[in-house]
Protein backbone atom coordinates (compact mmCIF):
# COMPACT_ATOMS: atom_id res chain seq x y z
CA UNK A 1 0.00 0.00 0.00
CA UNK A 2 1.22 3.49 -0.77
CA UNK A 3 1.54 6.11 1.93
CA UNK A 4 -0.90 8.98 1.64
CA UNK A 5 0.69 10.79 4.57
CA UNK A 6 4.31 10.37 5.41
CA UNK A 7 6.33 12.49 7.81
CA UNK A 8 9.86 11.94 8.93
CA UNK A 9 11.45 13.57 11.97
CA UNK A 10 9.14 16.55 11.50
CA UNK A 11 10.13 19.58 13.60
CA UNK A 12 8.17 22.79 14.16
CA UNK A 13 9.10 25.54 16.59
CA UNK A 14 7.07 28.58 17.59
CA UNK A 15 9.61 30.96 19.12
CA UNK A 16 11.31 28.91 21.81
CA UNK A 17 8.43 26.44 22.12
CA UNK A 18 9.02 23.21 20.23
CA UNK A 19 5.62 21.98 19.07
CA UNK A 20 6.84 19.04 17.01
CA UNK A 21 10.07 17.34 17.98
CA UNK A 22 10.85 14.76 15.31
CA UNK A 23 7.40 13.42 14.48
CA UNK A 24 7.08 10.29 12.32
CA UNK A 25 3.64 9.53 10.99
CA UNK A 26 2.60 7.16 8.25
CA UNK A 27 -0.92 6.74 6.93
CA UNK A 28 -1.48 4.44 4.01
CA UNK A 29 -4.16 4.59 1.37
CA UNK A 30 -7.64 3.59 2.39
CA UNK A 31 -6.80 3.61 6.06
CA UNK A 32 -8.82 5.27 8.79
CA UNK A 33 -6.07 6.43 11.07
CA UNK A 34 -6.63 7.63 14.63
CA UNK A 35 -4.39 10.45 15.81
CA UNK A 36 -4.50 10.53 19.58
CA UNK A 37 -3.08 12.97 22.04
CA UNK A 38 -4.14 15.51 24.61
CA UNK A 39 -4.43 19.22 23.89
CA UNK A 40 -1.08 20.79 23.04
CA UNK A 41 0.55 17.51 22.02
CA UNK A 42 0.98 18.78 18.44
CA UNK A 43 -1.96 17.22 16.58
CA UNK A 44 -3.23 20.43 15.01
CA UNK A 45 0.29 21.63 14.24
CA UNK A 46 0.97 18.41 12.36
CA UNK A 47 -2.24 18.74 10.37
CA UNK A 48 -1.53 22.38 9.54
CA UNK A 49 1.92 21.45 8.25
CA UNK A 50 0.30 18.75 6.13
CA UNK A 51 -2.04 21.45 4.80
CA UNK A 52 0.81 23.81 3.92
CA UNK A 53 -0.38 26.48 6.33
CA UNK A 54 2.75 26.18 8.43
CA UNK A 55 6.23 25.52 7.15
CA UNK A 56 8.21 22.79 8.91
CA UNK A 57 11.49 23.80 10.54
CA UNK A 58 13.06 20.40 10.06
CA UNK A 59 12.42 16.89 8.79
CA UNK A 60 10.17 16.09 5.90
CA UNK A 61 6.50 15.69 5.15
CA UNK A 62 4.85 14.26 2.08
CA UNK A 63 1.21 14.13 1.09
CA UNK A 64 0.40 11.79 -1.81
CA UNK A 65 4.15 11.85 -2.34
CA UNK A 66 4.33 15.64 -2.86
CA UNK A 67 5.58 18.49 -0.69
CA UNK A 68 2.61 19.88 1.25
CA UNK A 69 4.14 23.38 1.35
CA UNK A 70 5.10 23.97 -2.26
CA UNK A 71 2.31 21.94 -3.88
CA UNK A 72 -0.39 22.99 -1.43
CA UNK A 73 -3.00 24.17 -3.91
CA UNK A 74 -2.78 21.07 -6.14
CA UNK A 75 -2.84 18.73 -3.16
CA UNK A 76 -5.87 20.44 -1.67
CA UNK A 77 -7.91 19.34 -4.66
CA UNK A 78 -7.62 15.82 -3.30
CA UNK A 79 -8.43 16.50 0.34
CA UNK A 80 -10.99 18.07 2.62
CA UNK A 81 -10.37 19.45 6.09
CA UNK A 82 -12.49 20.07 9.17
CA UNK A 83 -10.72 22.29 11.72
CA UNK A 84 -11.10 21.72 15.44
CA UNK A 85 -12.57 25.15 16.01
CA UNK A 86 -14.74 26.07 13.04
CA UNK A 87 -15.25 29.78 12.43
CA UNK A 88 -17.80 30.84 9.82
CA UNK A 89 -18.46 34.12 8.02
CA UNK A 90 -21.08 35.92 10.13
CA UNK A 91 -22.97 37.21 7.09
CA UNK A 92 -23.07 34.02 5.01
CA UNK A 93 -25.66 31.33 5.65
CA UNK A 94 -24.58 27.75 6.32
CA UNK A 95 -25.81 26.68 2.88
CA UNK A 96 -23.85 29.44 1.16
CA UNK A 97 -20.72 28.50 3.08
CA UNK A 98 -21.03 24.83 2.14
CA UNK A 99 -21.55 25.73 -1.53
CA UNK A 100 -18.67 28.19 -1.66
CA UNK A 101 -16.25 25.76 -0.04
CA UNK A 102 -17.42 22.99 -2.35
CA UNK A 103 -17.16 25.11 -5.49
CA UNK A 104 -13.68 26.28 -4.54
CA UNK A 105 -12.76 22.61 -4.55
CA UNK A 106 -14.17 22.34 -8.05
CA UNK A 107 -17.84 21.58 -7.61
CA UNK A 108 -20.19 20.01 -5.12
CA UNK A 109 -22.47 16.99 -5.39
CA UNK A 110 -25.82 18.59 -4.66
CA UNK A 111 -27.58 15.32 -3.95
CA UNK A 112 -24.95 14.32 -1.44
CA UNK A 113 -24.97 17.77 0.13
CA UNK A 114 -28.72 17.71 0.68
CA UNK A 115 -28.60 14.18 2.00
CA UNK A 116 -25.89 15.13 4.50
CA UNK A 117 -27.79 18.25 5.59
CA UNK A 118 -30.71 15.97 6.30
CA UNK A 119 -28.67 13.40 8.20
CA UNK A 120 -26.85 15.97 10.30
CA UNK A 121 -30.14 17.79 10.87
CA UNK A 122 -28.68 21.16 9.86
CA UNK A 123 -30.66 24.23 8.85
CA UNK A 124 -28.75 25.78 5.91
CA UNK A 125 -30.64 29.08 6.06
CA UNK A 126 -29.19 30.32 9.31
CA UNK A 127 -26.44 32.93 9.21
CA UNK A 128 -22.95 31.96 10.29
CA UNK A 129 -23.04 34.19 13.34
CA UNK A 130 -26.06 32.46 14.83
CA UNK A 131 -24.82 28.86 14.68
CA UNK A 132 -23.69 27.13 17.87
CA UNK A 133 -20.30 25.42 18.01
CA UNK A 134 -21.80 22.06 17.14
CA UNK A 135 -23.69 23.50 14.18
CA UNK A 136 -20.62 25.32 12.89
CA UNK A 137 -18.84 22.00 13.01
CA UNK A 138 -21.68 20.38 11.09
CA UNK A 139 -21.36 23.00 8.36
CA UNK A 140 -17.68 22.13 7.94
CA UNK A 141 -18.45 18.39 8.09
CA UNK A 142 -21.12 18.58 5.41
CA UNK A 143 -18.81 20.64 3.21
CA UNK A 144 -16.03 18.09 3.68
CA UNK A 145 -18.08 14.92 3.22
CA UNK A 146 -20.00 16.27 0.23
CA UNK A 147 -16.79 16.86 -1.71
CA UNK A 148 -15.27 14.17 -3.87
CA UNK A 149 -11.79 13.78 -2.36
CA UNK A 150 -9.31 11.04 -1.56
CA UNK A 151 -8.27 12.21 1.89
CA UNK A 152 -10.15 13.67 4.83
CA UNK A 153 -8.28 15.48 7.58
CA UNK A 154 -10.55 15.74 10.60
CA UNK A 155 -9.27 17.62 13.63
CA UNK A 156 -11.39 16.74 16.67
CA UNK A 157 -14.50 16.89 14.51
CA UNK A 158 -17.00 15.72 17.10
CA UNK A 159 -15.99 17.92 20.05
CA UNK A 160 -19.17 19.99 19.72
CA UNK A 161 -21.58 17.28 18.54
CA UNK A 162 -24.20 15.62 20.69
CA UNK A 163 -24.18 11.79 20.99
CA UNK A 164 -26.83 11.39 18.28
CA UNK A 165 -24.84 13.47 15.83
CA UNK A 166 -21.63 11.74 16.88
CA UNK A 167 -23.32 8.47 15.88
CA UNK A 168 -24.25 9.93 12.50
CA UNK A 169 -20.66 11.07 12.15
CA UNK A 170 -19.36 7.55 12.87
CA UNK A 171 -21.72 6.14 10.27
CA UNK A 172 -20.62 8.64 7.63
CA UNK A 173 -16.93 7.99 8.33
CA UNK A 174 -17.52 4.25 7.89
CA UNK A 175 -19.22 4.89 4.54
CA UNK A 176 -16.37 7.08 3.41
CA UNK A 177 -13.87 4.43 4.49
CA UNK A 178 -15.83 1.79 2.60
CA UNK A 179 -15.44 3.91 -0.54
CA UNK A 180 -11.71 3.50 -0.09
CA UNK A 181 -10.98 7.04 1.08
CA UNK A 182 -8.22 7.77 3.56
CA UNK A 183 -9.14 9.45 6.84
CA UNK A 184 -6.88 11.02 9.45
CA UNK A 185 -9.00 11.42 12.56
CA UNK A 186 -7.49 13.45 15.36
CA UNK A 187 -9.45 12.94 18.52
CA UNK A 188 -9.44 12.38 22.21
CA UNK A 189 -12.69 10.48 22.22
CA UNK A 190 -11.31 6.96 22.66
CA UNK A 191 -14.53 5.11 21.91
CA UNK A 192 -14.81 6.93 18.58
CA UNK A 193 -11.26 6.02 17.58
CA UNK A 194 -11.73 2.45 18.78
CA UNK A 195 -14.89 2.11 16.76
CA UNK A 196 -13.62 3.70 13.54
CA UNK A 197 -9.89 3.37 13.18
CA UNK A 198 -7.80 0.54 11.75
CA UNK A 199 -4.62 2.10 12.96
CA UNK A 200 -3.74 4.48 15.74
CA UNK A 201 -0.83 6.83 16.44
CA UNK A 202 -0.39 8.21 19.91
CA UNK A 203 1.39 11.56 20.00
CA UNK A 204 3.04 13.05 23.03
CA UNK A 205 4.99 16.30 23.28
CA UNK A 206 5.44 16.45 19.53
CA UNK A 207 6.60 12.85 19.08
CA UNK A 208 4.63 9.77 18.04
CA UNK A 209 5.22 7.38 20.94
CA UNK A 210 3.19 4.46 19.62
CA UNK A 211 1.77 3.56 16.28
CA UNK A 212 0.11 0.42 15.05
CA UNK A 213 -3.14 -1.43 14.62
CA UNK A 214 -5.28 -1.73 17.71
CA UNK A 215 -4.70 -5.49 17.68
CA UNK A 216 -0.92 -5.01 17.63
CA UNK A 217 -1.06 -2.52 20.41
CA UNK A 218 -3.23 -4.78 22.49
CA UNK A 219 -0.82 -7.61 21.93
CA UNK A 220 2.07 -5.49 23.11
CA UNK A 221 0.33 -4.22 26.20
CA UNK A 222 -1.05 -5.86 29.29
CA UNK A 223 -4.33 -7.65 29.70
CA UNK A 224 -6.11 -7.92 33.00
CA UNK A 225 -6.68 -11.47 34.20
CA UNK A 226 -9.10 -12.51 36.96
CA UNK A 227 -9.25 -16.15 37.90
CA UNK A 228 -10.60 -18.44 40.61
CA UNK A 229 -8.28 -21.39 40.99
CA UNK A 230 -8.74 -24.88 42.34
CA UNK A 231 -5.44 -24.86 44.19
CA UNK A 232 -3.13 -22.08 45.33
CA UNK A 233 -0.56 -21.06 42.77
CA UNK A 234 3.02 -20.29 43.72
CA UNK A 235 5.70 -18.26 42.04
CA UNK A 236 3.26 -16.27 39.94
CA UNK A 237 4.51 -12.99 41.41
CA UNK A 238 8.08 -13.86 40.42
CA UNK A 239 7.17 -14.10 36.75
CA UNK A 240 8.55 -11.02 35.00
CA UNK A 241 5.47 -10.68 32.81
CA UNK A 242 3.07 -10.43 35.74
CA UNK A 243 2.25 -7.13 37.41
CA UNK A 244 0.03 -5.85 40.22
CA UNK A 245 -0.69 -9.34 41.51
CA UNK A 246 -3.44 -9.47 44.13
CA UNK A 247 -4.28 -12.74 45.80
CA UNK A 248 -7.36 -13.34 47.95
CA UNK A 249 -7.52 -17.03 48.88
CA UNK A 250 -8.01 -18.83 45.61
CA UNK A 251 -8.97 -15.64 43.70
CA UNK A 252 -6.15 -13.98 41.81
CA UNK A 253 -6.06 -10.73 39.89
CA UNK A 254 -3.14 -9.44 37.90
CA UNK A 255 -1.98 -7.71 34.75
CA UNK A 256 0.02 -9.71 32.31
CA UNK A 257 2.19 -8.66 29.37
CA UNK A 258 0.84 -9.85 26.04
CA UNK A 259 4.07 -11.78 25.40
CA UNK A 260 3.85 -13.67 28.69
CA UNK A 261 0.17 -14.59 28.44
CA UNK A 262 0.80 -18.00 27.01
CA UNK A 263 3.30 -18.92 29.70
CA UNK A 264 1.24 -17.64 32.62
CA UNK A 265 -1.99 -19.32 31.56
CA UNK A 266 -0.17 -22.61 31.31
CA UNK A 267 1.01 -22.11 34.87
CA UNK A 268 -2.58 -21.49 36.01
CA UNK A 269 -3.92 -24.48 34.13
CA UNK A 270 -1.52 -26.70 36.02
CA UNK A 271 -3.19 -25.87 39.35
CA UNK A 272 -6.69 -25.97 37.85
CA UNK A 273 -9.04 -23.15 36.94
CA UNK A 274 -12.63 -22.75 38.16
CA UNK A 275 -13.32 -19.52 36.27
CA UNK A 276 -11.29 -17.12 34.20
CA UNK A 277 -11.74 -13.75 32.54
CA UNK A 278 -9.07 -12.11 30.46
CA UNK A 279 -9.72 -8.56 29.33
CA UNK A 280 -7.56 -6.84 26.75
CA UNK A 281 -6.75 -3.26 27.65
CA UNK A 282 -9.06 -0.58 26.31
CA UNK A 283 -7.55 2.08 24.12
CA UNK A 284 -8.06 4.46 26.98
CA UNK A 285 -5.92 2.36 29.28
CA UNK A 286 -3.21 2.08 26.64
CA UNK A 287 -3.34 5.80 26.06
CA UNK A 288 -3.16 6.59 29.74
CA UNK A 289 -0.12 4.35 30.10
CA UNK A 290 1.86 6.71 27.88
CA UNK A 291 0.82 9.58 30.03
CA UNK A 292 1.27 7.72 33.33
CA UNK A 293 4.11 9.90 34.51
CA UNK A 294 2.19 13.08 33.77
CA UNK A 295 -0.82 11.81 35.63
CA UNK A 296 1.36 10.71 38.54
CA UNK A 297 2.88 14.17 38.69
CA UNK A 298 -0.63 15.55 39.01
CA UNK A 299 -1.42 13.06 41.76
CA UNK A 300 -3.78 10.94 39.67
CA UNK A 301 -3.36 7.18 39.72
CA UNK A 302 -3.91 5.55 36.39
CA UNK A 303 -4.66 2.21 37.99
CA UNK A 304 -2.02 0.48 36.01
CA UNK A 305 1.20 1.71 37.53
CA UNK A 306 4.01 -0.57 38.60
Amino acid sequence: MTAVIHTERLVKRFGHVTALDGLDLEVSEGQTHGFLGPNGAGKSTTIRILLGMLRADGGGAALFGSDPWSDAAELHRRLAYVPGDVALWPGLSGGETIDVLGRLRGGIDKRKRDELLERFDLDPRKKGRSYSKGNRQKVALVAAFASDVDLLLLDEPTSGLDPLMAAVFNEVVREVAAEGKTVLLSSHVMSEVEALCDKVSIIRKGVVVESGTLADMRHLSRSEVRATLKNPVRGLGDHEGVHNLKTDGLDVRFHVDGTALDDVLTQLAVVGITSLTCEPPSLEEMFLRYYGDELAAKGVENGDGD
Binding site: H76, V86, R105
Partner: peptide, 17 residues
Amino acid sequence: TGGRGELLAAAPIRRSG
Protein backbone atom coordinates in the same frame (compact mmCIF):
# COMPACT_ATOMS: atom_id res chain seq x y z
CA THR B 1 -6.67 35.24 12.79
CA GLY B 2 -10.43 34.76 13.10
CA GLY B 3 -10.04 31.15 11.93
CA ARG B 4 -12.21 31.44 8.82
CA GLY B 5 -9.09 31.55 6.70
CA GLU B 6 -8.34 28.03 7.86
CA LEU B 7 -11.23 26.73 5.77
CA LEU B 8 -9.96 28.64 2.73
CA ALA B 9 -6.32 27.75 3.22
CA ALA B 10 -7.34 24.09 3.05
CA ALA B 11 -9.07 24.65 -0.29
CA PRO B 12 -7.16 24.24 -3.56
CA ILE B 13 -6.21 27.90 -3.72
CA ARG B 14 -2.74 29.39 -3.98
CA ARG B 15 -1.61 31.94 -1.45
CA SER B 16 -1.94 34.53 -4.19
CA GLY B 17 -5.65 33.61 -4.19
